[in-house]
Design a protein around this nucleic acid. Sequence first.
RNA 1: CGGAGUGUAGCUCAGCCUGGUAGAGCACCGUCUUCGGGAGGCGGGGGCCGGAGGUUCAAAUCCUCUCACUCCGACCA
Length: 437
Amino acid sequence: MRLSDYFLPTLREDPAEAQIVSHRLMLRAGLVRQASAGIYSWLPLGLRVLRKVEQIVREEQDAAGAQELLMPTIQSADLWQESGRYDGYGKEMLRIIDRHDREMLYGPTNEELITDIFRQTIRSYKDLSKILYHIQWKFRDEVRPRFGVMRGREFLMKDAYSFDLDYESARRSYNRMFVSYLRTFARMGLQAIPMQADTGPIGGDLSHEFIILADTGESEVYCHKDYLTYDALSEVATDDSDLASTVEKWTSLYAATDEKHDAAQAGELGESLISARGIEVGHIFYFGTKYSKAMGATVTGPDGDDLFPEMGSYGIGVSRLVGAIIEAYHDDDGIIWPDSVAPFSVGVINLRTGDADCDAACEDIVQKLEAAGQDVLYDDRDERAGAKFAKMDLIGLPWQVIVGPRGLKNGVIELKRRATGDREELSVESALSKLCA
RNA sequence: CGGAGUGUAGCUCAGCCUGGUAGAGCACCGUCUUCGGGAGGCGGGGGCCGGAGGUUCAAAUCCUCUCACUCCGACCA
């Protein structure tokens, strides 16, 4: 992609409304634009990141045995009246009346709808267990949206729902999601810590929040410092005992959010206790038969009896993750994308657009990188070097290939790693082989 | 939902107190000189000052209402 053609409206100054660093950088780097309070348009660069995050979530859900479907954003109030939540959910639910005076709503979550789909289709215990998920926009009419996409009213969420015949099996589904969440966040470069959490209005008695430590986090959290050194990517549990032992390992040390914090218990950790602020990027619940009973979802059991399936739900804030990743990876110059979610893998900077040698060298490099499957953003604009460096640092692509007349005279170009700032002068060939390794 | 603010050019802001018909920097367009970390000169375009009503000879400025947005707190899968 040529930067001269690309729709990338960056800002040189900080927008007045943005308080936290991720919000400022998302606006400045041209990722999003605010449409109204807590509602954002995703511009091309931001959408690329959102899609990358979404895809990692999808791959890990699939790997955990969950199956993707897609439910609508607009739901009928009827289902919510059945579950009893239509009145209980409160003003956070955006209610809509259609032309026939039917009560509709913009879904804040999907337990009712998925339970309805389940009861219409699954009849036998033999069809269990099932984990179904979708990645869909949600709307919660927050009283006070803030922090950009971190606490928007409209947000993209992955929500999965499990259906099992008994507690033991439900617990296995829970564990599967638990381990898959560890892997999902780790692939994005985030150290997410599972913490005991309140189950809130959604109900149930087993729940973990996945929290990333960050100064701008909304909640106060406490945990054992050893969590920071755990490696989630090595967790590839597939069978029951592996799952259970992984979950055991990740839940045995103290970790709790404010609501569940036990000062006495935490005090025993002494200097191993970390007290920090955290961003919630995922939340998993086991809630048993709450919805299956309320909505009459049953399967026929081995003895011919009607049985209520045991359920759980599992959420990941996909759009929030984009902000959370920036909170974790930035410096004074801009964003520093982890390779796995970067909107482009390489930025090629032509320091002297119009110079025949520079142009030819850049065209050649871009063509070869793209042929090797790299996503390349080529800054071919007629701008000064400083402006190009500043913009490339701001948008935070992992690698920069810097091509200028000075280096070309000596047969070299420069390869810069955004995260460390390290630069090395290389021949075009060795730079290419390094990038495509 | 309580409390506090802010709405003036694409962005950051000045002007408002003390009414006299709108400014700066950056961005944008043209041009010249520049050219390895957001250069400089010259010229140019762009705003019914959030909206409605009122006071006045005259309102960005004073008054009333309203809308939007932001911040602190409460709330919050």
